[in-house]
């Protein structure tokens, strides 16, 4: 097994066709396990990055068939560390759906999950949502904001690095249990950390 200090689970949410899967594939650049999304309804990709001098493993999860949800509820991201909400800057409807996606998240402002709004497809010429509109929306809902192009690879690396750094910071400031990689007994306890825990130490 990889040697890493932190494992973070990131969940992608957004309308169909906004490029969620492309974003992740671009980031992991082929380093992902063969996708099973088409047959078991959920896909995940893994990438290990280095923040400071520590190895951080990002697991990025993408559920098929989200479109059938009018909004996502808290149970959906209860065990996730970060939530990336994606829309397509060339498609007004995907932006208009954001409040629906957020409806549930808003009600739980105290939830510690890190939230990032991503306007994807900035390579497209037919932009419909100006960057400042997206940014303003993100600010209002207390989210990070970033525009990306999975196609051109713009900001993709930055997006995930940012997430890794932020989650590291959170993990440290909250002084959540961190375990040495050799410490088996403590390790066992990670399983009992509640869902809201920001990170779990794995080996």
């Amino acid at each position: 097994m990889d040697d890493y200090k932190f494992l973070f689970k990131v969940v992608l949410v957004g309308n169909a066709g906004v490029g969620k899967t492309c974003l992740v594939r671009r980031f992991t650049q082929g380093l992902f396990p063969p996708g099973q999304g088409a047959t078991i309804g959920v896909d995940f990709m893994i990438k290990t990055v280095e923040v400071g001098n520590e190895k951080v493993k990002l697991q990025i999860w993408d559920t098929a068939g989200q479109e059938r949800f009018r909004s996502i509820t808290q149970s959906y991201y209860r065990s996730a560390h970060a939530l990336i909400l994606v829309y397509d800057i060339s498609s007004q409807p995907t932006f208009d759906c954001l409040p629906d996606w957020l409806r549930e998240i808003e009600e739980y402002a105290s939830n510690k999950v890190l939230r990032i709004l991503v306007g994807n497809k900035i390579d497209r010429e037919d932009r419909e949502i100006p960057a400042d509109v997206g940014e303003e929306f993100a600010e209002r809902h207390n989210m990070y904001y970033l525009e990306t192009s999975a196609k051109e690879s713009d900001n993709v690396e930055k997006l995930f690095m940012q997430i890794a750094e932020d989650l590291m910071k959170q993990a440290r400031t909250r002084d959540l249990p961190r375990y040495d990689s050799n410490n088996q007994t403590l390790d066992g306890k990670t399983s009992t950390i509640s869902d809201s825990s920001c990170c779990s130490r794995l080996q």
């Binding site: 494992l7 689970k9 969940v11 959920v42 995940f44 697991q59 999860w61 559920t63 149970s75 959906y76 991201y77 209860r78 065990s79 996730a80 560390h81 390790d187 066992g188 990670t190 399983s191 009992t192 950390i193 509640s194 869902d195 779990s200 794995l202």
Partner: peptide, 25 residues
């Protein structure tokens, strides 16, 4: 390891391969 809710049937042989600490709650 999926962070979302799931209902999964795991054959015992497969479950032996799992590190319980990784699964979480």
């Amino acid at each position: 390891l999926a962070p979302m809710p799931f209902l999964i049937g795991v054959p015992e042989e497969v479950f032996k391969q799992v590190k319980r600490s990784e699964i979480g709650d």
